[in-house]
Write a protein that binds this DNA or RNA. Structure first.
Lengths: 218, 218
DNA sequence: TACTTTTCTTGAACACGTTCAAATTGAGGG
DNA sequence: CCCTCAATTTGAACGTGTTCAAGAAAAGTA
C-alpha cells in the first residue's frame, strides 16, 4: 500500500514543518506533531527515525526552494558579482521562514553524527545539490573567473555560504538586514580579490593555498 | 557555610569533566554524575543550572589550560609564523582529551542561547580571555604585522581559530594529525599573505574588507 | 473466498534533563 | 542550651525523545 503510506509520511512532514515555522523547534514535540496529524507517536517514528530526520526533511525542502529561486534569479545576472549576490540572497530567502528555528537547526546540523550535517558523508547528495547551484553561478559567469581557480571556486564559495548562514542564524536585526548588507559588501570584495590572482606575488600564495586545500580534503 | 559548599561544587565539576573525558557526553547523565559524586540529582542542579553549565565549566578549564600552555610556548617564538603556530597548537593540545566529545560540545556551544556560545554576549569574558592570547601573539611578534591590520588582526585570527576548532571536531585522523598539518600549512600562508598588504592593488581591497568587517560588527 | 505474509499503526514503557516542595543541616544570637 | 533563619540537600514528579511488543490493515497467493 504505497499511496496511503506516502500520504501519511507527507502529512507528518507537512505538519512538522508548519509547526517548526509557527511555534519553533522546542515546542514542536513528537507528541504534538502526532496529535496534530491525528496519528500515534510510534507511527510518526515509522516514517522518521528521529526528530533530526524531520530537520533533514526541512533541509531538503529549503534547498529545493533555493535551487528554484536561484535558477530564476540567475537568468538575468551576467557577471560573477551579480550571480553570486543572487545565489546568496535567494539562499537567505529560502531560509527566511525558519529563522527563529535557526539556532536549533544549526545545533542539530553541526553534530558530526547528524544526518543533516553538510560536511558528513551521509549527506553527500544534499551537499552536491547545494554545490551545483554555486557551480552554475560560477561557470556561466562572464567574464570567467581566473583559470587556475575555476575548479575549486564553487566549493570555496559554498564554504562562504555556510559561513553566511552561520552569521544569519545569529543575526537578530529586523528581517536579518545585517546579513543582507554583509552579502552585498562581501561579494564585490571576493570578485575584486579574484582578479588579483594574476599579480605574481599573489598568484604564488594562491597556488600554495589551493594545493594545501586539496591536500587537506584528499 | 562556604567551604563545604565550594567542595561540593568542585566535586560535581571534577566528576562531570572526568566522565565527559572517559565515557563521553551522552553517557554522562546527570544521574550518573550525582551517583558517582555521592549526592542527589537535585543537589547537582543547585550548583549547575543545567548540563550545559557543566560544559561551560569545561570550556573555562580548557581555556585556562590553553592560556598557560600558550604563555609557555610563546616565550621562545619570535616571528609571527612561529607565534601563531604555537598559539594554535597549544590550543589543540588543551582540547585533545575531549576530542570524542567535540561534536556534542560544539552543538551545545553554537546555539545562540547557550551560555558557552563564543559569539554571544553572555560569554564576553571567556571570549576576551581567548582573544587576549592572540593579541599577545600578534603584539610581541617581530617583525610586526602591517600597521593598518594590527588592531583587527587578533580578532580575525581568533575567528580562524574557531574555524580550526570546527575542522578539528570533524577530524577523525589518528591524534587529529590532519588538523596539525592544516595549521602548519595555513599559518605560513597567512603570514605571507599579510605582507601583500603593502601592494597597492591588494591594499585597497584590504581597506574595504576591514571597513566592511568593522561596519558589520559595530 | 480463505489463508499467509508484509506493511502499517498503536500506546505503554524507558531513560533522560529538569523542577520543586519539603526535609535537613549549620551558623549566629539569646 | 535552644531558637531562628538561610543555605544546602533530597527524591519524587513532569514532559521530553525514543523504543518495541503487540495488534490491525492491506496485499499477495491459491
Amino acid at each position: 500500500m504505497t499511496v496511503k503510506s506516502e500520504q501519511t509520511r507527507q502529512l507528518v512532514a507537512d505538519v512538522a514543518l508548519r509547526m517548526f515555522r509557527e511555534i519553533g523547534f522546542a515546542k514542536t514535540t513528537m507528541r504534538a506533531i502526532a496529535a496534530e496529524a491525528g496519528i500515534s507517536v510510534g507511527n510518526a517514528y515509522y516514517y522518521f527515525a528521529s526528530k533530526d530526520d524531520l530537520v533533514q526533511e526541512l533541509y531538503l525542502q529549503v534547498q529545493a526552494e533555493h535551487a528554484a529561486r536561484a535558477a530564476e534569479a540567475l537568468k538575468d545576472a551576467g557577471d560573477l558579482t551579480g550571480r553570486l549576490k543572487a545565489t546568496l540572497h535567494t539562499g537567505l530567502d529560502a531560509m527566511a521562514p525558519y529563522h527563529r528555528f535557526g539556532g536549533d537547526f544549526i545545533a542539530t546540523a553541526i553534530r558530526p553524527t547528524s544526518p543533516v550535517n553538510p560536511f558528513a558523508a551521509g549527506s553527500t547528495a544534499a551537499r552536491e545539490a547545494s554545490l551545483a547551484i554555486f557551480r552554475t553561478a560560477v561557470e556561466a559567469a562572464k567574464p570567467q573567473a581566473p583559470k587556475k581557480l575555476r575548479s575549486d571556486l564553487p566549493e570555496l564559495l559554498w564554504l562562504c555560504y555556510m559561513a553566511v548562514t552561520l552569521f544569519w542564524v545569529y543575526d537578530t536585526s529586523e528581517g536579518q538586514q545585517r546579513t543582507r548588507r554583509l552579502v552585498d559588501g562581501a561579494v564585490p570584495l571576493i570578485t575584486r580579490g579574484l582578479s588579483l590572482a594574476r599579480i605574481p606575488g599573489v598568484g604564488r600564495i594562491l597556488d600554495d593555498f589551493l594545493s594545501l586545500s586539496r591536500s587537506i580534503r584528499g
